[in-house]
Nucleic acid binder design. Structure first.
Lengths: 198, 198
DNA sequence: TATATTCTTGACCGAACGGTCTTTAATGCA
DNA sequence: TGCATTAAAGACCGTTCGGTCAAGAATATA
């Protein structure tokens, strides 16, 4: 998109970089919690430029959610499938992320926040969130399968949903400021399930 | 409050009943997602009456959160401590609630939603949410202790946090419209942890 | 250099927001 | 029957909201 030089005045900002800042705002404060003027000052752009580049506020939110999917969600999925790391460690890292991240940032998970914030109102948001959850669940199955190759498909899926549920819950709880040290041991317990033969 | 007849024109509505409707709105749509006019039409009251009875919008939200605590949260805590029900069934019922409730209502859990919605902005909300989470965690420990009386205190607490995390995560995931049937089996797996001796 | 095209800027818009105030109505009490 | 008190009703307030528009600036092409 960018390298193709087109007629007219060239855009003075990088779309994805700006969108990343917008994502950060919605991530932290939700759809209604972010105003256009906040977006303007965070990006340094005028309202009209934002509208020309991304559409209205709802479109910005959805694009932010899509960016979160293609950046963070698929990044986490890739890490879960990284065979250079022992499967149990991949799972541990995934489940620990909500807690280790909390040290410097209590924003939680944009997916989970969006589900709480917008799922009730906006069907498109709901769909995006659901597919991202699905991506994570499928990725979780990979190390689970490596741990217990004999387990059947539905059992694997069930365990993946359990771990994803725990992940989401921790993401939410952390936002309220609970002591993360008290949540850590739960991960070890959950990983015991992940390794169980039955 | 109500039986004590005071001077002046009597209030024509029941405070807690009205607050219950307000709670429902914030629960579903969050703080910024609910407007005063929505509250007006849902309660049938004028703006000034609402302000006289509850204070400004933020106060309404906090009172709603407190009502949720004293109604729903303590209700769930009581059920978890109900000795007429086998401990494992209490836990199963608690963890199933997010899923069974989803059949007729995908609002999720007000606590979890508030954590995603307002925790970042409002410290009072954060505190309220945290204490409600704490209430639930303590209540979860009761049936856990009944199941494994030999377990030490910290191990109990860790398991309780794990189950609470799973509960919260399911509450959030359900809002996005995921198939609840796929989440159910995770509960059984989690309950295996709850019963483990080690 | 002229033109078409695209972007930036900032003024501008109507609507909706949260919140207040004045008027009127209903009650307890003297 | 007044009088003090409290609530209900709705007009009213300034502000902020999301969104648009017209004018000027920067580029590619001819």
């Amino acid at each position: 998109m960018r390298e193709r030089t087109s007629a007219g005045r060239p855009r003075e900002f990088d779309d994805t970089e700006v969108l990343r800042k917008i994502t950060g705002l919605f991530w932290k404060s939700g759809f209604e919690g972010v105003s256009l003027s906040q977006i303007m000052s965070a990006t340094g752009l005028q309202k009209a430029s934002l509208y020309a580049a991304f559409g209205d506020k709802r479109a910005m939110y959805l694009k932010a959610l899509q960016q979160y999917h293609s950046d963070t969600v698929t990044g986490a999925a890739r890490a879960l499938k990284d065979e250079t790391v022992p499967p149990i460690e991949r799972l541990r890292a995934f489940l620990s992320a909500p807690l280790t991240a909390a040290e410097h940032d209590r924003s939680g998970c944009f997916l989970c926040n969006a589900s709480a914030d917008q799922a009730d109102l906006n069907p498109e948001t709901r769909t995006l969130v659901r597919t991202s959850f699905e991506t994570l669940a499928k990725a979780i199955e990979v190390p689970l399968r490596a741990l217990t190759p004999d387990l059947n498909a539905t059992a694997l899926e069930n365990r993946a949903q359990l771990l994803l549920g725990l992940y989401s819950g921790y993401r939410i709880m952390v936002r309220s400021g609970v002591d993360v040290a008290r949540l850590f041991p739960g991960i070890a317990a959950a990983l015991q399930i992940a390794q169980a033969d039955a």
